[in-house]
């Protein structure tokens, strides 16, 4: 306080000068219409600038919450979409001549067996021949092995092991990974397989030569896969060649819709009937 008084006494002339100038400026900007108007518009512009910056800073700190909220919304929308697709397919299949699906009873529509858990990749390799990833969700979140992993763009892989808080997944970019798929336009089933070259392109195998395949056709997950809902995006056909080894299948190259270079947020797909299907598969294997 003493120091403050000393400073005040030392610079009292300067402070008095500032005081008079402040009074003059007060008169200028409060008693002259032109200056008042200009000051008003500057004040709004300055206040707007600072409010904008303030809002930007606040939204930056709220990004994590916003992201979480969007992920939850995405899950709900995905479930709705899958349910609607399944309902539509069921209705078409069961009552092909009905023109008004809205009049069909609810009992005809199947209940979706898939649910989703948002997760984040904490590790992901793409340059090895056998690539894997680690997710930040584990047994505590109900994640087990053999669950599908998708991004908002397409298929990512399948979980193969889980600890309490983390899970390991085999990437679609793994030479051991194979997935049952189909061409959307023709409904012809095949298998997706990465041969370890370009991380953006995979091969679609086992499409017979007599089936016409168009460049640009969409490849989606098939109903044969227990890990993914039917009809989920995998990629687009970018090249179709005749087989070199004389086999009766097309050589099809598919450009993946998932960009593994930028992958961060994913969804783990839970199939409610997974254990049931597994048991049935075991019976089939025993019969073989």
């Amino acid at each position: 306080m003493q120091r403050l008084i000393e400073l005040f006494l030392k610079y009292n002339n300067f402070l008095y000068f500032i005081f008079l100038q402040w009074i003059a400026l007060y008169f200028i900007f409060n008693f002259n219409d032109f200056h008042k108007e200009v000051y008003g518009s500057y004040r709004i512009a300055v206040a707007g600038f600072f409010q904008e910056k303030n809002r930007a800073i606040r939204s930056y700190f709220l990004l994590v919450q916003e992201n979480e909220k969007l992920l939850q919304e995405n899950i709900q929308l995905k479930q709705q979409l899958i349910y609607t697709q399944q309902a539509l397919n069921a209705a078409r299949f069961r009552i092909p001549y009905s023109r008004n699906f809205n009049l069909l009873p609810d009992s005809l529509f199947p209940v979706s067996v898939f649910s989703f858990v948002p997760a984040r990749l904490v590790q992901n390799s793409i340059h090895e021949p056998f690539n894997f990833f680690i997710l930040n969700k584990g047994k505590q979140d109900g994640i087990e092995k053999e669950m599908g992993v998708i991004s908002s763009d397409g298929v990512v892989g399948i979980t193969i092991e889980s600890s309490e808080n983390y899970s390991i997944g085999i990437s679609l970019l793994n030479k051991h990974f194979r997935l049952s798929t189909k061409i959307k336009s023709t409904n012809v089933h095949g298998t997706i397989h990465w041969r370890g070259h370009n991380p953006k392109i995979v091969n679609m195998e086992y499409i017979p030569l007599h089936i016409p395949v168009q460049i640009g056709d969409t490849v989606i997950t098939s109903s044969y896969s227990n890990y993914f809902p039917e009809g989920y995006h995998i990629g687009k056909i970018i090249d179709v060649k005749d087989p070199k080894d004389g086999q009766g299948f097309h050589e099809i190259l598919v450009l993946l819709s998932t960009d593994f270079f930028k992958l961060e947020n994913v969804y783990i797909v839970k199939n409610k009937h997974q254990s049931e299907l597994k048991k049935l598969n075991q019976i089939i294997n025993q019969l073989k």
Binding site: F17, L20, Q21, I23, A24, L25, Y26, F27, I28, F29, F31, N32
Partner: peptide, 24 residues
């Protein structure tokens, strides 16, 4: 200086400008 400036401001109807400049 401030008061002389202010006197002129009153007669010019531009309050404060002469007062500010005179003091400075």
């Amino acid at each position: 200086a401030f008061l002389i400036g202010l006197l002129l401001d009153f007669t010019n109807l531009k309050l404060g400008i002469h007062a500010f400049t005179s003091t400075l």
